[in-house]
Amino acid sequence: MHEELEGLEVVTVALDIDRSKALPWIEKANPTHRSVIDSAHITGELLGFTNVPMAVWIDEELNLVRPPEAAALHRSPSSDMEIPDDTPPDMKRLLSNVKAIPDVSVGYRDAVVDWVEKGSDSQYSLSPDQVMDASAQRTPEHSRAAAAFELGQYFFKQGNQEASRKYWRIAHEAQPDNWTYKRQAWTIETTPEGEPSDMLQAPTDVYEGSWLEDVVASGGGANYYKPPFA
């Protein structure tokens, strides 16, 4: 988008504990914008990213003018996918919830363009008080989740996966609405077939939750993201 819009810089941040998982995606995209890797999820702690994709808007003075919120420039193909009648029930349930995820891209690109053109006069540029009001409250449980997640990262990088799982379970329990903690941990586990990574983040013997069950428990795909401009 920065190529189309003079005056806007885009920086993408990959929240991937294992840098090598993010690199192939970046290399395939061959980005012309800055693409950085946050293997410690530090931006989650500092800015409040609790899922992906999320974004913040930062003005020329390095002030946030939008809080962390769901972000997308393009409608997801999954919003329009057809689910064949003969799809196995478990997969059908999964795909139905994926399809129900709100289209975050509605109005997003137009809002960014408006901000780039009008700056603080844009209706989408928030005042400092509005940004702070929109920032989530951090509870002691959230602090505990962050500490546990960091310990889990430490042990994962040490090759001690059992210890990492122990602390990531604590993080999941302490802050169940933080999808970055859960999805990062789930995807490291192997599939029932022994594949090295499970993009479906299906149930395992390791963690209590799974993507589908946790989405359903939180109200279904329709509640997964809150589109900021819809």
């Binding site: 920065h2 885009v10 690199l23 999320m54 808007w57 930062i58």
Partner: peptide
């Protein structure tokens, strides 16, 4: 943070520019 080539990037280097900072993951 390091970029995908390993070069350090600092958020304050974006001073003077409007920046859309987007979190994603593999």
């Amino acid at each position: 943070l390091p970029d995908h080539k390993g070069n350090p990037w600092r958020l304050k280097s974006m001073y003077g520019k409007k920046t859309l900072l987007v979190a994603w993951a593999s």
